[in-house]
């Protein structure tokens, strides 16, 4: 059965085979797209000159918040491969940190949000030192345990109002423009998060994180300080979620554990990343927009939060089973990704 192949044929075939495995070159980035998007978001509140668009602004603010939180989660969950199901703990820490400064000293959260982010990052760093010793499923479990611990602590901490929470003072602005400070703050947080996510993905640090997500032992033997990388990723990922929490807390004017520390918030971050494409830069944003639009529809049709939970779960099962790479990931794999979404 010996075929007539000669030595040179085999060598040539091997070369061709290897070239076939290499990926194709990179395309030009569509830098104009995020700038245009940002410009539109800046101009959107102009609708309020005629009035009656408060709900639209609310929805956009909500979407920007989740785009920021999902992008932030993605730095740990997508790039590094450590799935946290308790990331809303940092949302809560951010919210309460700034909220308490507002309640006790009257300083608006819009100014203290970076500090709130820092507080969340410090906690994230400390928690990460402990929990990031675990890998895979064990880490996921520890993240749920973290959420449970936080819930018990906040429910019983009288200084922050326990399970009843605290009401925050409102800014003295006419209702027509009341949303604007928060809207623009959230926009800044969102833009900052996405920019950071992009920069990290294309840095040496980001390369290290992705190496960790593929094979941590090999990454370590390649000279990456995996422990420091992971903990730093955790802290960064907590930072932006904390900032979002700070703004959200003052925006909704009260703090309660059962707003910040419910599993649905964490589930949303995870699901948005899965829907859009875990580990891609644009994925979490696409996922946030799609899921929030979908939730709007389902709440309109079904109301009740239990049904919403059921639907969130169903969407997640379906997405995981049929679209594990998410919208952006799947399109990229099929080489159909529009240039405006290609930031990887």
């Amino acid at each position: 059965m010996a075929t007539g192949l000669g030595v040179s044929d085999v060598l040539k075939a091997r070369k061709n085979y290897n070239e076939g495995l290499a990926s194709t070159g990179r395309r030009e980035r569509a830098t104009w797209f995020p700038l245009v998007l940002l410009a539109l978001l800046v101009l959107l509140p102009a609708l309020q000159i005629t009035g009656g668009h408060n709900y639209t602004l609310h929805l956009m603010l909500y979407a920007m918040m989740y785009a920021a939180m999902a992008s932030s989660w993605n730095i740990l969950g997508g790039y590094t491969g450590y799935i946290s199901l308790g990331h809303n703990v940092f949302f809560c820490i951010g919210g309460y940190f700034s909220g308490m400064l507002l309640a006790y000293f009257g300083v608006t959260s819009l100014l203290t949000a970076p500090l709130a982010g820092l507080a969340a990052a410090v906690v994230g760093f400390a928690v990460g030192l402990i929990t990031l010793k675990m890998r895979g499923p064990t880490f996921i479990i520890s993240s749920i345990a973290l959420l449970m611990v936080a819930r018990i602590l906040f429910d019983h901490w009288q200084f922050v109002g326990g399970s009843n929470g605290v009401t925050l003072p409102q800014m003295d602005i006419p209702a027509q423009w009341a949303k604007l400070p928060y809207y623009y703050s959230m926009m800044v947080v969102c833009a900052l998060t996405v920019w950071a996510s992009y920069r990290i993905k294309h840095s040496k640090f980001g390369l290290g994180l992705r190496a960790i997500s593929q094979d941590e032992v090999k990454a370590e033997s390649a000279g990456i300080d995996t422990r420091f990388y992971k903990v730093l990723a955790f802290a960064i990922s907590a930072f932006f979620v904390g900032m979002a929490g700070a703004i959200w807390g003052e925006y909704i004017t009260y703090l309660r554990p059962n707003i910040f520390l419910i599993i649905l918030v964490a589930a949303n971050m995870v699901l948005m990343c899965i829907l859009g494409g875990k580990g891609t830069v644009a994925g979490p944003i696409v996922g946030a927009v799609v899921l929030i639009a979908f939730n709007e529809l389902s709440v309109t049709f079904f109301g009740a939060s239990e049904i919403n939970l059921l639907i969130t779960g169903l969407v997640m099962v379906l997405a995981l089973k049929f679209f594990p790479a998410g919208i952006v990931g799947t399109l990229a794999r099929k080489r159909r990704l529009p240039r405006v979404l290609d930031w990887d």
Binding site: I140, L264, G313, M316
Partner: peptide, 26 residues
């Protein structure tokens, strides 16, 4: 596999939680 299945069980837990909550209330 392990990441995938744990996320799937998480999603199933959300579904079952929502379903039981909707049927019998919390």
């Amino acid at each position: 596999y392990s990441e995938m299945t744990v996320l799937l069980t998480f999603a199933v837990a959300l579904c079952a939680d929502g379903l039981l909550g909707a049927l019998f209330s919390n």
